[in-house]
């Protein structure tokens, strides 16, 4: 039990990650897949940021008050990762929009049946 409390950030991360993956895999709607992907990536952000926390640490700004600082590096990394994530989502949404323009639907099954028809 103590492990659970000590590593609760990991469990939160796992929960988000699995939830995101679940949405990506099960949803038939392309838009929902993009959302799932965003959640999945957010899980990683949470994971990294929670890693940075040092017990009793403060924000890494030099003051005499603080005797420990949290690690700033993961924040920086995640800033980059967030940008990447935003770009990914944006591109994903743009693609979904284009798919809608071309197929007039963003449901996977409907598109599959459309493609089957056009192949014949």
């Amino acid at each position: 039990m103590s492990n659970f409390i000590y590593f609760w950030n990991h469990f939160a991360f796992i929960l988000l990650m699995v939830g995101g993956l679940f949405i990506i895999i099960t949803s038939q709607n392309y838009l929902k897949k993009v959302v799932g992907l965003a959640i999945f990536q957010t899980a990683v952000f949470v994971f990294f940021v929670s890693l940075a926390k040092v017990l009793d640490g403060t924000a890494p700004i030099l003051t005499k008050m603080a005797n420990a600082y949290s690690n700033p590096l993961p924040h920086v990394l995640i800033l980059t990762a967030i940008v990447v994530g935003v770009a990914t989502s944006a591109l994903g949404l743009a693609l979904v929009l284009q798919i809608y323009k071309n197929y007039e639907t963003i449901e996977e099954k409907e598109i599959e049946s459309l493609e089957l028809k056009s192949d014949k």
Partner: peptide, 26 residues
């Protein structure tokens, strides 16, 4: 478009897996 979208989703999952690993290593 579908191919690109698939690549986007699967590729992003792959990259995110990689970055999780990086997190552990870090």
């Amino acid at each position: 478009l579908l191919a690109a979208f698939n690549y986007l989703i699967i590729g992003a999952i792959g990259a995110t897996f990689y970055v999780i690993g990086v997190g552990f290593a870090y």
